[in-house]
Design a protein around this nucleic acid. Structure first.
Lengths: 341, 341
DNA sequence: TTGAAAGCGCTAACAG
DNA sequence: CTGTTAGCGCTTTCAA
């Protein structure tokens, strides 16, 4: 270990310090090619002593290989994407690939920018949330010449490969369960995010199925910003004041659902008989609530794992299953807030 | 836009397509140096038409500049680090720097690995959580020759610069407030994480101040894994069964605190008179709970912003305030669960 | 098992 | 305002 220096160390420094050619030093440090045990030890020792950190920039340029996988998601703030990331990291840890995360805040322009920025580092693959992208983004992805896995959603045409669930179907399934359970006056609460296509698709599937059963959403409200738990609480109160005869509330995510649940419990309202409730995502948080909120698992972990496996496989054997769509099946959990038939 | 090709486009392709020298193309694409409006337009047009994405690897190697800032944190799973990240991104968005996140899972070996990996991309700065690092990690950081900001914690010796709060003091302040409010039989619940040094320091500050007031922790319990909300609930129940005369519960984080709160409310226990409660972090979630949990803000956003500003400033003017420690003051919010004096 | 030469795609530094 | 010439620090390839 030497004292801080302005210029980072190079292979040449290690080469000189060990009396071994740069090329051989390089081989030792990458465990590539045969090097005699003595030489190897000499090099290792010198590298360690100097505190040498290889320059991947130079390495990548020379080898035309970057062990990075770009992961592009809308947000880190709601527990769903961190869980997808866990799935990805878990799988990539057994390979030499590494995830690099970019966040878009649900903004197509930002997605475009982040994507451009990441692609300019020539990653070995892209895992990106959603099937909706700007023309420019699609073009970049197409041009990149690397595996592209679009995750979370399967309702649409993937650029290359998709892994996710059908949110339209998720909305339908939930609507069916609610109708079967005999609820009739249904309210909906969600986020004010026109660009959250998956929430939109769930809502569409939901209302369509209700319509098929002769039911129309009786009331609805959308929020943005603030504590989701508090918003769920407030919106529920407001909606029930406005439309007192509702007998079911469908929340676009578990967090606002939990807020609604807490509020209704405080009011001493009989759940699920007087009013039933359901959210979406199946987040871990639900386990600690006074009643388990009905919800639907979005298969977050599995999506991450599968996507990562696809990227890893393509990098390993170049096998190309382009056009593949992996459609996972979310499970509905009725919890304690959706009455049995 | 052309069809997918195996070889990514290079500057030379744009040069040929536009009939302008590579150097000038490079200047246009980086908005660097004076280029005539016509030439500029010609180049832009060609680049757009081809769908050219510059190769930052080559650029970085040539210019010896990488606009990346390594951000190394223990976890994405608990809402505290994502908020720090927001602070960082927010500030860096006004610069040409970009954060790249690495996660250590609170494991020193993983920290070492992630750090090595990131430093090998020669970033322009490092923002890393905590002041405790392995010898090797410290050495790398010292050698790197770039700004290093250690965040979250100020109880210790920074390698270069630190931005955070004193967790020992945070523990002390909370203990003082609890003692002043007249509570005497105090229970503690936390995570089973010997490597979460900040939680440890809070606990130390807490118990020391209690001791100074002649009080000893009456009961304590640690958990690991599972839903924090559910764990808080379970641990609270178990602890009160074991030690029924407790009059205060201090939780090492808000999530388990919320679980405890929900449980006690269901039991109809008088909060804060029969039992007082407090957590740590001041998370947004608290706003939606039936009672606002007493907590202490960890200044997450501000820490992120400040750290990013320091890195950005050092990159801009090279001004070096090494050794600086920015010690922020968390505010105690009594909420509804810590009785007034 | 080791080494020498020739780039990877871009930009700094000069010239014109 | 535009072009030319050298590398950046590695790895690939080929020879020894």
């Amino acid at each position: 270990m030497q004292t801080r220096s302005k210029r980072p160390l190079t292979l040449r420094d290690v080469s000189e310090a060990s009396g071994v050619s740069e090329m051989t030093v390089s081989r030792v440090l990458r465990n590539k090619g045969d090097v005699s045990a003595v030489t190897r030890e000499k090099v290792r020792e010198a590298a360690r002593r100097l505190g040498y950190v290889p320059n991947k920039i130079a390495g990548a340029l020379a080898s035309q290989r970057v062990n990075l996988v770009a992961v592009i998601i809308p947000s880190l703030g709601n527990m769903v994407f961190p869980e997808v990331l866990s799935g990805i990291s878990e799988v990539l840890e057994d390979t030499d690939l590494q995830p690099v995360v970019g966040v878009t805040d649900y903004q197509p322009e930002k997605e475009e920018k982040v994507l451009f920025e990441m692609l300019s580092w020539r990653p070995s693959g892209v895992i990106i949330a959603g099937l909706e992208h700007s023309e420019a983004s699609r073009a970049m992805l197409l041009q990149a010449g690397i595996p592209v896995v679009e995750i979370m959603d399967t309702d649409g045409e993937p650029i290359d490969t998709a892994v996710g669930i059908s949110h339209r179907r998720a909305g339908r399934v939930m609507a069916e369960a609610i109708v079967e359970a005999g609820y009739k006056r249904i309210g909906f609460m969600g986020t004010k995010m026109p660009l959250d296509h998956r929430a939109r698709k769930r809502f569409e599937g939901f209302t369509q199925t209700l319509a098929k059963n002769g039911i129309e959403i009786a009331d609805q409200e959308f929020y943005s910003g603030g504590s989701a738990l508090a918003k769920g609480r407030e919106m529920t109160e407001a909606m029930l004041k406005r439309t007192p005869d509702l007998d079911f509330l469908y929340f676009s995510n578990d967090m606002i659902g939990a807020g609604g649940l807490l509020y209704l419990q405080e009011q001493g309202i009989d759940i699920p008989n007087k009013i039933g409730l359901a959210g979406f995502n199946g987040v871990e948080l639900l386990e600690g609530l006074p009643k388990r909120l009905a919800s639907m698992d979005a298969c977050r972990l599995e999506i991450g794992q599968t996507a990562a496996r696809i990227v890893a496989a393509r990098n390993a054997d170049g096998a190309s299953d382009e056009g593949q769509i992996v459609d996972l099946s979310p499970t509905l959990s009725r919890g304690d807030t959706l009455r049995k038939i």
